[in-house]
Design a protein around this nucleic acid. Structure first.
Lengths: 346, 346
DNA sequence: ACGTTTATTGAAATCGTTTCCAGCTGAGCT
DNA sequence: AGCTCAGCTGGAAACGATTTCAATAAACGT
């Protein structure tokens, strides 16, 4: 007397298994009487189809795997959340695996997803180490959407579906703005330079210096291995330097926090002594006093766009809509940036 | 030429299906020669067992469902993240569903999880509307761990497994601290009063007023339907009142943000004109200037404890360890609280 | 009234695994 | 030699659905 199966329903309704199956699905080729009886019996018994058995037979699980370095990072959490909402609307279930950007864990997760026959995957790799894995997955027929990362080079001419954020454009706008205020020594604090977001930011940052014809030595780039590791101490070192930057562009909540605390410790006033610009608009940036000028992109849009791209593939409309999305980055002007102090002007 | 199945491996290794299965699993009752051949063949062919078929047969999916109102809320995100890490260590996959506290969506998610035969569930219900659902699930044999919410009344004497946070103790400590500083009119801004966290906070808040023998009219309780909805405007109304509170205890990042912005708009200095205390220690609280005194509980511990409790049940050690966890709340003293201004002292 | 389509139906195959069960082999013991 | 017993093995039956296919019944046109 365990779970109710289709067999129980068939018995209760006085029809065969096949009829029950047909009645419960499409309803095509089923007499109205049979349909009614089956529905009644299923309802009365509280029948709930077994996804496992169904999936085994139909080769489709209605599951999507999501692979991300750290789903509790607010910059990721909102993306995952939005993607989940959209996918669930379409009847899919999202399974999340955190990899801490560890290639080994990424591979393990990919293997597990494959073993579980997920219909598709949303992945934000922490390195380029596993490109082969994604390619194999894609070749095996599982749609893989890349989130704000480099898409693997594809042998063919097909474009790899991905959602990208225009970090380069954002960095250019931010840099141009600071240069316009008079800054000549600006520090950019960002993540792993090999990954797309940071690489693009750095490129945009440099481009803008070049375009303005400013001594590129003023463009101080600091790589933070992990955004979690950048503590107050590191910021202190940077700001104690004789040739300290007059403006800092800082990635994310944690690094921004480190910078702000360091500035306070050194009694540097923001924005009078130091301009601060946040990459990513978090609660902290918006509410801090002074409010922090920030680069903002719509995280929900990233998640939704990824889900949409995936659904397109899952519905087999590969040829239809766009195969990639590039989302804009806006500069939100607030109070944390000002012309550099007189003593620091050229 | 689809996926490699156990049948292909059997053929390649020159043994039967059953032998392959035995060799790949326990390895009991298998000759070393067969084991070697099977392992070699499986390896060569890149065989990957099909979780679906396996689950269908063994009645165990290695999946855990997680039901939460909003996984992007930092107070939840860290919990989900920690739970996922612990569960994956133990070989389980976590599927997350966001319900926005909607009872209908909660029921739908529960039904889907049941249909997918998840081995267990972590749920943080948004109301008491679905207690029957959780009870049914539990009666059907699926372990259900409740996260920081009221556990359904159980008919029997068994204790419902849950992870609770000592919000009452935290609220008492915070209130006692503020009263000790001299505050007599304190506002508590929290969520749905019917839910455990808020209910406990309110109780602790009142208890402390009573114990100190202070006019309970000074304990101003404001319920925020959703922590997302509390904007600056609402805080302004509260603070413009003639009898405005001299201290505010605010729930979470969003409400705290609203309070801080409102204080700034009214040119109220924190902590000189207004003491602010955050319920929940977020980046914003820690980094804000002045740094916000906060109630802190360890979100990772909540997630880990929930995972541990669930794993215990999944391993069938129901009798073994503790069936519930109560996690402490600490008061982190920072700079946002001070004695009320003279004009406001009794 | 009779052949021909058309709408329903149920039996059986299938998905890929695990597991029960009976059979076989060879070693050990008397 | 005969007997038992343990260790391996392969065939076949689940698990719970979907789907093909042939059979039956009903409707239809002439």
């Amino acid at each position: 007397m365990g779970v109710i199966t289709i067999r129980d329903v068939a018995e209760a309704a006085g029809v065969s298994l096949s009829t029950v199956s047909r009645a419960l699905n499409g309803g095509k080729n089923v007499s109205t009487r049979a349909a009614r009886d089956v529905a009644a019996a299923a309802d009365r018994l509280g029948y709930q189809p077994d996804f496992l058995a169904r999936s085994l037979r139909t080769r489709s699980t209605g599951m999507v795997g999501c692979l991300v370095s750290d789903s509790s990072n607010p910059l990721n959490a909102a993306i995952v959340h939005a993607a989940e909402e959209r996918l669930r609307e379409a009847g899919y279930l999202l399974a999340v695996v955190n990899t801490a950007s560890d290639p080994v864990r990424e591979r393990a997760a990919a293997a597990e997803f494959r073993g579980r026959r997920t219909d598709g995957m949303l992945v934000a790799p922490g390195s380029t180490a596993n490109e082969k894995t994604w390619r194999e997955l894609a070749r095996a027929g599982t749609p893989v959407i890349i989130l704000d990362r480099d898409a693997p080079e594809d042998a063919g001419d097909t474009h790899w579906p991905s959602v990208q954020v225009d970090h380069r454009g954002g960095a250019r706008a931010a840099t141009r703005y600071l240069i316009g205020l008079g800054h000549r020594r600006i520090a950019l604090l960002t993540g792993d330079a090999a990954m797309r977001p940071s690489r693009e930011r750095i490129a945009g940052f440099r481009e803008e210096f070049a375009e303005a014809g400013i001594d590129p030595a003023g463009a101080q780039i600091r790589i933070q291995a992990s955004s979690m590791d950048f503590a107050q101490g590191d910021a202190l070192v940077l700001l104690r330097d004789e040739e300290r930057p007059t403006a800092i562009i800082a990635l994310g909540t944690r690094i921004l926090a480190g910078v702000l605390r360091a500035a306070r410790d050194l009694k540097l006033s923001v924005p009078d002594d130091l301009s601060v610009l946040s990459v990513g608009d978090t609660d902290l940036a918006a509410v801090h006093i002074p409010a922090i000028t920030a680069l903002r992109w719509n995280l929900e849009d990233v998640g939704r766009a990824a889900a949409e791209l995936l659904l397109q593939r899952l519905r087999g409309e590969a040829g239809g809509g766009p195969s990639s999305a590039l989302l804009p980055v806006d500069l939100v002007l607030r109070e944390s940036c000002a012309p550099p102090a007189l003593s620091h002007r050229p």
